[in-house]
Amino acid sequence: MTHELEPALVRRPLLTRGVWIGLLLAAIMLGIVVVRFATGLQTVTHLDDRYPWGIWIGVDVATGVALAAGGFTSAAIIHLFHRSAFAALGRPALLTAMLGYTFVGIGLCADLGRPWNIWHPFMPWMGNPNSVLFEVGLCVGIYLFVL
């Protein structure tokens, strides 16, 4: 195994400016999520009956999930095809993938009207194999489990 793959202590300060900005954004979002669960999607989104899905569906599916696909392909290149030259990229790619899918799941919990029913599609008596979103949901679930 190459030394890039071995864990090492981070000797730089963790709270850089980028991290602070990220934390600030996360705090704002947390506030919005609190408002959403207090007053409903109406107050925090501009969704209506004609536009039931917001742009986050497109943005997150196009970025968060696309980033996560990189984790799977990187892992396949390194560990299945044994291209060890790329081994240093493996861990960051897998971490990004896991974060990407995790955040899709977390974001979904705020977007779903009844997030505590999120396990319903995985139950054979409720899952509807005719639904395209059923396949997507199943894949996200399985990928999260794998990661």
Binding site: F37, A38, G40, R50, P52, W53, G113, N117, P121, L133
Partner: peptide, 30 residues
């Protein structure tokens, strides 16, 4: 059946007539 529903609103996206409506003002039991 509201007890099964996750509130994902995919039905509203799917409807060719755009008929279903949704309780956007209900935070917990839309």
């Amino acid at each position: 059946d509201q007890d099964r529903c996750m509130g994902c609103r995919y039905c509203m996206v799917a409807c060719p007539f755009e008929m279903p409506a949704y309780d956007y003002d209900d935070p917990l039991h839309p």
